[in-house]
């Protein structure tokens, strides 16, 4: 029991600090974003599991040989008023902390879900009144805004991709298709569920380096995944051009001027998206473009298998340590 809690605590600390820092600095996630995404999920889940598990196992140590018998004894104390004299102060402290952390994580997850849903519903209501349906299909709407903007608003069957008039004017048909495919990839691959989970995790434990690093990495990985889907039907040059036009934030004119070789210095209107100060996702666009400009081969099959095995072990080892002794005993 003691060694189990010790091991879980070490695992929790490793997953909370050094591991995410190493992963966020690694170069290979851009080569195999999907594999990297699985690893981030495994790190997050295993981190939470080992954090709570370590405290639980430590706290239950005096009353049970394993988690199952310990929990049974604890239930006896809570519900049948059995004597708690076996538990010292630190044991009770650890148990309370485990219970609080679990409740905090679940509560934050639900609260974040509720907040996100409310914002999306409000946004959707306004879109229904302000945007007009597009000829590109039922899930696409056009908003009368001059700056080039494209985004998708998830919502099950009512998911919608929104394009601005400015975007439609600035992009060629092929570039527009690339943007649409990119946004639809977000929707069909359910990226919003990942964003929700990692946003909630960061909200719950904002002081933990791993939550911020994980959210930033996941944000940029989903963009790469969606880019990869767009590349299946549209050319690389088309996608890069679409990204560049939308990111530089100004339709047509600067591009035309640049074509004459005049690199107009930062004359970006502050209301344009190109000028909005970077928070969180800054750097994502640059890494997306450099990934498209100088592509590197995906991770080799054996390396991917190693990463996947790490994911499985990360989840299986804490689970097994917590449950197996009780099930065997």
């Amino acid at each position: 029991m003691f060694w189990t809690s010790y091991f879980l605590a070490v695992l929790a600390i490793a997953l909370a600090w050094p591991v995410p820092i190493l992963l966020s600095r690694a170069q290979w996630p851009a080569r195999s974003p999907f594999t990297a995404m699985l690893l981030w999920q495994a790190i997050a889940l295993a981190g939470g599991l080992s954090m709570i598990g370590a405290m639980l196992v430590y706290g239950l140590e005096p009353v049970g040989d394993n988690l199952v018998s310990g929990l049974r004894a604890l239930a006896g104390m809570v519900f049948n008023n059995a004597p708690t004299t076996d538990l010292g102060f630190w044991h009770i402290f650890a148990l309370s902390a485990a219970a609080l952390l679990t409740a905090h994580l679940v509560f934050t997850l639900l609260l974040t879900y509720y907040k996100i849903q409310r914002q999306r519903r409000r946004h959707r209501e306004l879109l229904d009144l302000l945007a007009s349906p597009s000829s590109d299909g039922p899930g696409t709407m056009v908003l009368n805004v001059d700056s080039p903007v494209a985004y998708c608003l998830p919502g099950g069957a009512r998911s919608v991709t929104v394009l601005s008039d400015g975007l439609m004017a600035a992009l060629e048909p092929a570039e527009l298709r690339a943007v649409l495919i990119h946004e639809n990839a977000h929707l069909s691959q359910r990226h919003h569920l990942l964003l929700w989970a990692f946003a909630a995790w960061r909200q719950a434990l904002p002081w933990l380096p791993t939550t911020r690093l994980a959210q930033e990495s996941v944000n940029s990985l989903i963009e790469m995944l969606a880019d990869d889907v767009a590349l299946k039907t549209e050319s690389k040059a088309t996608l890069i051009k679409a990204i560049a036009i939308v990111a530089s934030g100004s339709p047509a004119t600067p591009a035309a001027r640049l074509a004459f070789g005049e690199p107009g210095p930062s004359d970006v209107d502050p209301s344009q998206p190109g000028a909005t100060g970077g928070t969180g996702s800054a750097g994502t666009t640059a890494s997306r473009v450099s990934r498209l400009l100088s592509p590197r081969p995906p991770l080799s099959e054996p390396l991917r298998a190693v990463v996947l095995a790490c994911c499985v072990l990360l989840l299986a080892v804490p689970t097994a340590l917590l449950l197996v002794p009780g099930l065997l005993g």
């Binding site: 914002q119 903007v149 985004y151 608003l153 943007v179 946004e183 977000h186 909005t276």
Partner: peptide, 18 residues
Amino acid sequence: DREAVLARFIGSVTDNEA
């Protein structure tokens, strides 16, 4: 939590990037 509410084609871009 904007990033969780909706997914933009291009996120915030720094002046250098632009």
